[in-house]
Design a protein around this nucleic acid. Structure first.
Lengths: 107, 107
DNA sequence: TTTACATTATATTAATTAGTATTATATTGA
DNA sequence: TCAATATAATACTAATTAATATAATGTAAA
């Protein structure tokens, strides 16, 4: 049975698009974007993020949980504090472009 | 009344995050990603996209409508055909990074 | 070692708002 | 009248989020 090369390409493209979509959906939330933006500048503990972004603690924890589940961040405990850092090069690459497009100061 | 500088920054960050989120949500769909990927390689008419991606015509038209509404693509009519091209530099920049992260051949 | 407190995570629920495929039909141009 | 594309309407299937309460873990002090 012959499968036209175009079908193989299309299937590969669909798989790649689905994976890409996964990342994009995880990024598609204001709080998560702000969190990743902070964490991408260096390791941050939860209370630092709470102060910097003024997000309620349970919301913060919930959204950090999403980022953990999706493998975008990793954690390190130090006493009472838990420090978050970026764990996905793909996410970091996208965050950086988004920063350049939407957050870079004019000029 | 004094507004701490941090609040101004935070507000600006929220506005930027919301705009960014808008783009990300529009990109967070397999069909739309595939469409943008094709169109980013050069102007395409609807029937070309339909053949290349094997997406039903009404679905195609619906998703192209989303991309138009969000300003990600623009159109040009030529007789019976309507040609689509990328109209957002922000979208193009993101698509390019995504391609490098998820679609570039190994090595 | 018990108590208390600080930090963070989880569970639950309520409220809201959505994404998608499908079918049918309309529009526009040749 | 046919080809290309868009729109409308519907039906399906559910996803996101905020809020409240509580649990878990670690530290420090009484």
């Amino acid at each position: 049975m012959q499968i036209p090369a175009n079908d193989l390409n299309l299937n590969a493209m669909r798989v790649a698009a689905d994976r890409t979509c996964g990342l994009l959906k995880t990024l598609s939330n204001r709080d998560r974007l702000l969190l990743l933006c902070q964490i991408s500048q260096g390791e941050r503990c939860v209370s630092e993020l709470e102060t910097a972004l003024d997000i309620h603690q349970p919301t913060l924890s919930q959204q950090l949980g999403v980022l953990r589940d999706e493998g975008l961040v990793s954690t390190r405990r130090e006493g009472k504090w838990i420090y978050y850092s970026i764990a996905s090069k793909e996410a970091l690459a996208v965050i950086e472009v988004l920063y350049h497009q939407y957050c870079r100061p004019p000029q």
